[in-house]
Design a protein around this nucleic acid. Structure first.
Lengths: 247, 247
DNA sequence: GCGGCGCTGTTACAAACCGTTACAAAGCGT
DNA sequence: ACGCTTTGTAACGGTTTGTAACAGCGCCGC
């Protein structure tokens, strides 16, 4: 399994962009973002981030949105009293920061989960580019709408599924997102810690561990720390209450 | 208390619009939507809905967004296996349907909680109007961004607070939204059933009842069925982990 | 007007699930 | 090899849920 793990890691680079991320609901109606057309009008800056480094924190001046190019990030909300909630994980092709449009400061935190890279798109330039590229505005709007639908899908999942089922749904979502990027949906490496998964799923990390162990016992998955083999996607689907087909 | 209830109901009409709704996070940076400017370019149709009637269901063709004028609505997500999740409650000034922009069909259900009325804004006309009213596009974008932030705030609340605290946070949010519309934040009528509240808060309706009873026992609120008096907003705030000030 | 009926809401008690705590093992960097 | 972080496992306890019974309110027909 360790040998396979390095294979997977090796393939995790330089794949073409998929569409803007969609979650379990799976309404993949939006076309791809035409990054080349944008580059003609927007000064794109590459931003590298080491694992644990943040793109931005809540409260910093908002000036740009980011397109994930390599690696993965987590976005999180912070309450005044210190409570933290991971609100999502972003990977290649995902837009980051669109929730802060219209504000003067960023509304959330974004932290790299591994050595990663984004393309920084200064928002004023994006706005100007919208005048030259009629489709860019609608792409941006569609991306925001998709983000809302994605959040709503997770609210549905968090509000109606038990712990084990949430973990199953999460694995299916990760698998589907890897599949969209051209990777295997049956074998992947989780980029986030158990604690981050637990926060996102509104559970404790021990519960996530137990759920993964149980999914293993049911022969739905093979899991060694962060490496996951999906053995029975239908089993996971029946548990997650999802009928969609996994690639 | 019954006499007061009718007073409250009487004042719930013909107040000026507030901004697009924001949740507990309270980043109220967006300006009001200039409905009059829109009317000059968009054929606005008034849509009345009786209690229990839907504006639209998931899957119906998307053609318009709606601005709530009178009354209140609930939006909900439906899973293939029948699970339902209330994702929010909308009142005067709130935009409905923006999460479906970019799709050909609506993505969620919207049902009136009482006799209500919306202004229907056909989306193609809104798009055309954006060309004539430069600010309309940015208003729409800001509204969508606010919607994302609102959902994220609720994810934070649902993921980090216990049952009683969620109910407290919910009451504070309702109070703040009434305050934004010019009504009392200390005395209001809940428009939704315990079941709808429970679904939104990811609880069971019995748990909501018990939580409300406990908030009553703590002398934080006075509650008789759907009528709520806030007696100790600071108590609620400390429970909800919110430092913002209630009007 | 009156009573029946259903929906909504409340409360008590029992049970299940998940969180808490504690500890151990494995991975990772130094 | 060492220590720290991450992850896994187990026992226990608490919060939330499930079940049930009952009360209040509105709707309807009589």
């Amino acid at each position: 399994m360790t040998a396979l793990a390095s294979d997977v890691r090796a393939t995790l680079a330089n794949k073409p962009y998929g569409s803007v991320a969609m979650a379990i609901r799976g309404n993949i109606d939006e076309p791809d973002i035409d990054i080349e057309a944008i580059r003609a009008h927007v000064p794109v800056r590459r931003c590298k981030h080491a694992a644990g480094q943040s793109i931005y924190h809540a409260g910093q001046p908002f000036h740009a949105i980011h397109l994930v190019h390599v690696g993965s990030y987590k976005t999180s909300e912070l309450a005044a009293d210190g409570r933290e909630q991971v609100t999502g994980f972003r990977m290649r092709g995902d837009l980051i920061g669109i929730e802060s449009i219209g504000l003067t400061t960023y509304a959330s935190d974004v932290i790299a989960l591994e050595d990663s890279e984004t393309w920084e798109l200064p928002y004023p330039a994006v706005l100007r580019a919208c005048l030259h590229i009629p489709e860019l505005q609608s792409h941006l709007t569609a991306a925001m709408a998709a983000e809302i639908r994605c959040d709503r899908s997770w609210m549905l999942m968090l509000g109606t599924l038990a712990a084990e089922c949430r973990v199953a749904a999460f694995l299916l979502d990760v698998a589907a997102r890897y599949a969209r990027l051209g990777y295997s949906a049956r074998h992947f490496i989780l980029r986030m810690s158990r604690v981050d998964m637990a926060s996102f799923l509104a559970l404790k990390h021990e519960t996530v561990s137990r759920a993964l162990s149980r999914l293993h016992d049911l022969n739905y998955i093979d899991v060694q720390r962060r490496e996951v083999h999906v053995l029975d996607a239908d089993g996971l689907r029946s548990m997650a209450g999802i009928s969609a087909t996994l690639n």
